[in-house]
Design a protein around this nucleic acid. Structure first.
Lengths: 137, 137
DNA sequence: GAATGTCAACGACAATCTTCGTACGAAGCC
DNA sequence: GGCTTCGTACGAAGATTGTCGTTGACATTC
C-alpha cells in the first residue's frame, strides 16, 4: 500500500495566496480534496488541464497541498486549514487597511452586505460568547 | 499655481494590492499623503529610495495614487479609499475562504484576537445598528 | 498488438512584481 | 561657471505567476 501523502516541507514563510491559487484552494477546502479534473471542473473548465495541474504543483511546492495516488491519477488535499489561511488574511487586512481596528473591519463588512435577522443574531451570539470567555478569565 | 493632482484613469479592474503595494498604500492611508522619503521612512528604510518611487509610479499607473508637486519633490495621495479596498479584500476572503459565511469570518476574527470589553460592546453596537437599519425597511 | 485515451512531467512563454543602478535635470553653493 | 546634492525617469535583472503545448508513460479497447 502507498497511501502516503507527499508534500514539500512547510518551512518558513506562509505567505498569502494569489487569486488563481486561492481559486484552487477554495475548491479543495470546500470539497475536501480533488483530482486535477475535479478541480478544473469546479472552476468551470475555463482554464486548461495543464494549468490547473501546474498550479497544484506550485501549491504543493509551497506546502499548501499534498497529494496521494488514486488509480492512475493524483488526488490533492489541502495541507493548510482554511481557518488558518483566513486568520492570516484577516490579520493582514486589519493591520494594513483598517489600521488595527477590527471594529472598522466589522463596520465595513456589515455595510457592504445584507444580513438576515438570523445572521445578525448569530453574529451577536459569537460576540457574546467571546465576551463571556473574556470575562471568565 | 499648479496644485493639480495628476493621475492615470481608474479604468476597469480595481484588483487587489500585492504585499509591497499594500505596505505603501497603508502608509498613505494612515498619513494622508507622503513623499517618497516620507513613505520610505515609514517603512523603516528597509527598501531603497528608487524602489519606493517605482512602486508609487506603478500604483499611480494603476490609478491607486496621484501626485502633485511640492517644491522639487512629489507628494503622493491615495486615490482609492481604504474602506473600498478593504471591502473588496473582505469580499474575496469571505467568498473564497469562508465560503460566503461572514459569521465564520467573524468567528475566526474574534478567536484570533483579544478584545477589550469596550471593543466587544462597540462591535455589538455595530451589529445592532445594522439590525435596526434592516428592520426599518 | 495497434490505436486511442488518460494523465503527469517538462519546458516555454508572457506578464507582473520587486529590487535597484544609472542617468539626467534642476537648485543651490563657492 | 563648475560641483554637489536632491530628486525623478529609465531600464534591467531576478523571482513568481499563470498560461499551455508537447511528450511520454500506462491502460483500455478493438
Amino acid at each position: 500500500m502507498e497511501s502516503k501523502v507527499y508534500s514539500a516541507e512547510e518551512s518558513g514563510g506562509p505567505k498569502g495566496f494569489t487569486d488563481r491559487e486561492l481559486d484552487i484552494m477554495s475548491v479543495l477546502w470546500r470539497e475536501g480534496s480533488g483530482t486535477v479534473v475535479e478541480v478544473r471542473g469546479a472552476l468551470g473548465e475555463e482554464v486548461g488541464y495543464t494549468t490547473v495541474l501546474k498550479m497544484l504543483q506550485i501549491l504543493e511546492e509551497k506546502g499548501a497541498v499534498g497529494h496521494e495516488r488514486e488509480g492512475r491519477a493524483y488526488r490533492y488535499y489541502p495541507l493548510v486549514e482554511s481557518v488558518r489561511a483566513g486568520g492570516r488574511a484577516l490579520s493582514r487586512i486589519v493591520n494594513k487597511i483598517f489600521h488595527g481596528s477590527a471594529e472598522r473591519l466589522l463596520a465595513t463588512l456589515v455595510e457592504d452586505r445584507e444580513f438576515t435577522a438570523e445572521e445578525i443574531a448569530r453574529m451577536r451570539a459569537i460576540l457574546d460568547r467571546a465576551k463571556r470567555r473574556r470575562d471568565a478569565e
